[in-house]
């Protein structure tokens, strides 16, 4: 949220001392030949969405600052030599955008091949879907000589696990742990190039790090590299059944901030807690109590 997005008609302006509010004008962008209008400051991705064009995104998230690293969302913008990451390029008046050229298709397909041959994306449903959609051919890479992320899963506590062999280095967890939400900075990108890893300082365990177990990193991870222990355990027992789960929105039972919780329930037991990323209170973020403090309602004597 930025200062420029308010106040508006719905948000009363105070009579005195009101902040300078930039009046946002609209810009018109052509997406595959269709003109769409978006607010100044909105992105090419927003324009694509407005034009009804589906765009794959991995490192983009509504609650994190775009690092535009995955490049799966690239589009062609007239006048630009290279492709442009739609998730982070502001829409400009008169931009002519193509989303389905050979160049775009090729880059998306290759990004998906690269990710699919580097990390275990089997639990990343979106990515698996796009691999099909873009005809990414993982089979053409010689297995013996193709390097992958081979990290072992880190199980260091009862709350969440880290399986970096699934990680696509999208930076979202780092952003969520950092200035985009949590300001704990327990994890950062370390190393360089293909050997980059999300890591605590010197790879110390999470309980030894600054981590405060808000789980906000888990919430934004697109690949299940970060996974709640409950889900991890159920998957291990082949008993993770999203199709049998209900999601009910309610309000956290702890402090008086009033965070919205989405309770994911399977067999009358909470198996995961998330928060809606579009709610003005949480923006998808919670603290350790809201995220993990639900056990007390299901520590049932009969069990």
């Amino acid at each position: 949220m930025t200062a420029t997005s308010r106040p508006s008609a719905e948000r009363p302006i105070s009579p005195v001392g009101e902040r300078q509010v930039a009046i946002r004008t609209k810009v018109t962008v052509s997406i595959d030949g269709t003109d769409v209008s978006v607010l100044e400051g909105q992105t090419v991705l927003d324009a694509c969405t407005a034009a009804g064009v589906d765009t794959p995104t991995i490192c983009y998230g509504p609650t994190v600052t775009p690092v535009n690293a995955c490049r799966v969302c690239v589009v062609e913008v007239e006048g630009s030599r290279t492709l442009v990451p739609s998730c982070s390029r502001p829409a400009e008046e008169g931009m002519v955008v193509t989303t389905d050229s050979d160049k775009v298709m090729h880059s998306r397909k290759m990004v998906l091949e690269f990710l699919g041959t580097s990390s275990d994306v089997s639990q990343a449903d979106d990515i698996m879907g796009w691999i099909d959609d873009y005809d990414a051919d993982l089979g053409r890479y010689d297995e013996a000589t193709t390097q992958r992320m081979t990290d072992e899963v880190k199980i260091e506590d009862d709350l969440y696990i880290r399986a970096y062999d699934r990680c696509v280095l999208c930076y979202k967890c780092v952003e969520a742990c950092g200035e985009d939400a949590q300001w704990t900075f327990a994890i950062a990108m370390s190393g360089r190039g293909f050997d980059s890893r999300i890591s605590t300082e010197f790879g110390v365990t999470l309980p030894d790090s600054a981590c405060v177990y808000c789980g906000n990193c888990v919430a934004v991870c697109p690949t299940n590299a970060l996974q709640f222990k409950t889900e991890f355990d159920l998957r291990k027992m082949a008993d993770w059944r999203p199709e049998d789960q209900t999601i009910t929105q309610t309000v956290c039972s702890y402090c008086g901030v009033g965070c919205n919780l989405d309770l994911h329930v399977q067999d009358n037991a909470i198996v995961k807690v998330t928060s809606p990323s579009d709610h003005s209170i949480t923006h998808g973020n919670l603290c350790v109590k809201g995220r993990f403090g639900y056990q007390y309602v299901q520590n049932r004597p009969s069990a």
Binding site: V67, C70, M110, L115, T145, G193, F194
Partner: peptide, 24 residues
């Protein structure tokens, strides 16, 4: 391969795949 910062997928993985190809 060694000098890619690793930030973006095309280069992080592309330089590795390219290097693997030449090693093959």
């Amino acid at each position: 391969r060694d000098e890619s910062c690793g930030q973006c997928v095309p280069c992080r993985v592309g330089t590795v795949r390219q290097s693997e190809s030449l090693l093959r």
